[in-house]
Design a binder for these strands. Structure first.
Lengths: 149, 149
DNA sequence: AGAATTATGGTACCTAAATACCTATTTGTC
DNA sequence: GACAAATAGGTATTTAGGTACCATAATTCT
C-alpha cells in the first residue's frame, strides 16, 4: 500500500474489497471465505469487519452458517462510509508553522492538500457499492486488455 | 502530518516550506536560520536539504557566510520536483488481489486512487516557487481573515 | 447435552518508516 | 590557527500498522 501521495492502509483495502465482494455475491459469507478470496490475513480481516459491524454497515451472525452480510442495500452504502468506518473521521494539518505565521498566505501547501483531500471525499461519497457491482458486470470482459500499469 | 488520504511527510513539508522561504528571500540562508523559521528540527532540516542539493535544486556553501540557496530561478523549480527529490519517484499499487484476479474490473479502487494521485502530480508540476512567492505578495494581507480551516 | 463452527474482544508482539540525536569530517572565512 | 557552517554516517527512539494469540460468546448440528 505504498507509493503515491494518496495512501490507503491495507485495512481500508480489505474493507473496500470485502464489502465489494459481499455486494457482488449478495449473500452471507464467512470471514474465512472472504479473507481467502482477498489473500489477506484472516485475523486482520476479522478486525476490519468488526469495525464495519460497529459502524452498522454489516450484519454478522455466529455459528456454522454464520458470517457477514451487508446491513443495507448496496446502493445505500458509499465508499466513503466504508473508508470512514476504518480510518475514522480525520482532519488535515499540513502547515509546519503556526497557521497565523505561515508566510505563504493561509498556508498554500495546506490548502492545496486539503483540496485534493476534498476531491477524494467527494468522489468516494458519490460511489456506492451498487455502482461497483455494476461496473464489474460491464467491465469484467475487458479486464485483461487494459491491465498494463 | 496525519489526517486525510493525502499524506505528506514532515520531510516534504520542510522541503516545500524551506524552498519557499528561499524563493521569498532570494538570498543565501543557513540551515539553522531556515529550521528556526519553520520550527523544525535543525538536524532533520539538514538531511532534507542534503537531498535537495543532490537533486540539483539547491546550491550549498560551507563555512561562515555559508548556507543554501536556490540553484535555479524560482520560476524554473516546480513543487513536484521538490516532492520527488525527497520521496523519490513512486508508483502506486492498491489492489489487494493480483491485478488479473480482481473481480472489480481492472481494480476500480486502484484506478480511482491512481487518478487522484495523477491529479496531485499534475497540480504540483504546474506550480513553481515563483507562483508561491507571487501568491504570498498578493495574499499576505488577508491571512488572518480566512484562517478558519 | 455436547461438539463443531463462527464472530468478538483483548492483549501483546513484530516490523518498517520517520524522525531525532550524536559525533565526527570537510570546507570556507577571518 | 580559530571558528562557523555544511556533510556524512551511525544509532536510537517513536509511531503506526499489521500480525499473532487466546479466551469467550453465540449458534448450529448431531
Amino acid at each position: 500500500m505504498k507509493g503515491g501521495v494518496v495512501q490507503i492502509s491495507q485495512a481500508v483495502s480489505i474493507a473496500l474489497h470485502g464489502m465489494g465482494l459481499l455486494a457482488l455475491r449478495g449473500r452471507k459469507m464467512s470471514i474465512g471465505e472472504l479473507s481467502e478470496m482477498m489473500s489477506a490475513s484472516e485475523t486482520h480481516a476479522a478486525k476490519v469487519f468488526q469495525r464495519l459491524v460497529k459502524a452498522g454497515l454489516v450484519n454478522s451472525s455466529r455459528g456454522p452458517t454464520g458470517g457477514v452480510e451487508l446491513a443495507l442495500p448496496a446502493s445505500k452504502i458509499t465508499l466513503f462510509e466504508i473508508y470512514e468506518a476504518i480510518e475514522g473521521s480525520s482532519q488535515s494539518d499540513y502547515c509546519l508553522l503556526q497557521q497565523d505565521n505561515c508566510p505563504f498566505g493561509s498556508c498554500i501547501f495546506g490548502s492545496m492538500l486539503k483540496n485534493i483531500n476534498n476531491e477524494f471525499v467527494r468522489y468516494m461519497s458519490s460511489m456506492t457499492l451498487a455502482d461497483l457491482a455494476g461496473s464489474e458486470i460491464n467491465e469484467t470482459k475487458s479486464v485483461a486488455a487494459d491491465n498494463k500499469n
